[in-house]
Amino acid sequence: MKNNKKLTIAVTGLNAIDSPGPGVSVIRGLLEAKSFDCRIIGLAYESLEPGIYMHDLVDKTYHIPYPSAGTEALYNRLMYIHEKEKLDLVIPNFDAELYSFIKLAGKLKQSGIHSFLPTLEQFEARQKVNLPEFGKKFNIHVPQSKAVYSSAEIFSLEQEYGWPLVIKGKYYDASLVYNSDQAATAFNKISARWGLPIIVQQFIHGTEYNVTGLGDGNGNTIAAVPMRKQYITDKGKAWGGITITDQKALDLTAHFLKSTKWRGAFELELMKNKAGEYYLLEINPRIPAWIYLAVGVGQNIPEALTKLALDWPTEAFTSYEAGKMFIRYAWDMIVDLNEFQQISTHGEL
C-alpha cells in the first residue's frame, strides 16, 4: 500500500563515473519504491557529477560545501535548501561526508529532515585503526593489523604476519608489498600523503565477497545481500557481480548487526580463505555503489532505509534471488552548456 504523502529526499554521491558514488543507484531504488512516491533533490560537490543532469531521476540539484568547510557551513546550506524544497530525508553516500552528517543528524531532525545513520561510536569503532579491537570485542575474525609510527616497526611484524603485507593509510590508500624494501617505500609514500599512523595488515589469501545490508539499530537484520565481484576495474571497483547464497556470510552479517546494534546501511568486505573461514576486511558505513543489484533481487534497501528513518513499520527482507548479475555500463549524455553554466554559477539546477 502506498503512503499518500509524496516524500522529498535529498541524495549525495551523484558522481556515477568509473569509480562511482552510490547516489544514482540509490535514487533508482527510491523511485521504484512500492510504499511511497518521492521527488529527488540531488546534493553535489562538483558541477560535472553526472547525476545532476539526469533529469528523469533527479528533480533538482544543489551544490553543497565540502566537508572540510565544517558542519556549520553544511548546516546553513541544507537549511537554505530545506526552505525551498521541504526535505523529509537526506541520504549521504560519501565516506568523507558521513562524520558531518552524523554530527548534524539531531539538529536536522529538529527541522524535520530525517536520516538513518550509524551512531558516532559505531562510525568510529569501524575505522581501520580500530578494526583489531572491533574484531576482538565482537568476536569476528579480522586480519591481524597494527598501527605503526615508523617503518622500523613493520619489520618486527613481518615474522608474525608473513609476506605479503598490506600497508594502509589511516583513511585512504593501500598497497600490497612483498618485501621490506617495498614496505618501506609504501610506508613513506602513504605517510607523506595521509600522515601517521600507517596500518600494517596481514594479507589473507582467498576469495573476496561483499555483503550489503541494513540494520535497524536494535540488532535486527532488515536486509542482507551477499555478492561476489566478477570483474574489477583497475581502480578496484566492481564492474560486474553476482548474488550468491552463502549462509556463512549471512550468519556473519547477522552476528555483526546483532552484536554492534548497527544502525543504517553498510557494506562488509569479506575474505574467505582456503579453510573456508571468513575474515572481515573492512566495514563501509554506507550504501555501496552496487546497491541496485540488491534492489534488483528483491531487497530495496534505499526504500527500507527511508521507512526506518521515518519511523514507519518496516519488515525485514527474508529472501533474495541468487544468481542474478549486475553489469555496469557507461552512458554518454548530451548536455547543453546552459545547464553546466547554471549549476556552475548559481550552484542550483
Partner: peptide, 14 residues
C-alpha cells in the same frame, strides 16, 4: 577558470 573536477575529497575551506 572552471576546473572540471570530480568531487575531490579535499576541497578548500572557504
Amino acid at each position: 577558470k572552471l576546473e572540471s573536477n570530480m568531487p575531490n575529497k579535499f576541497g578548500l575551506r572557504t
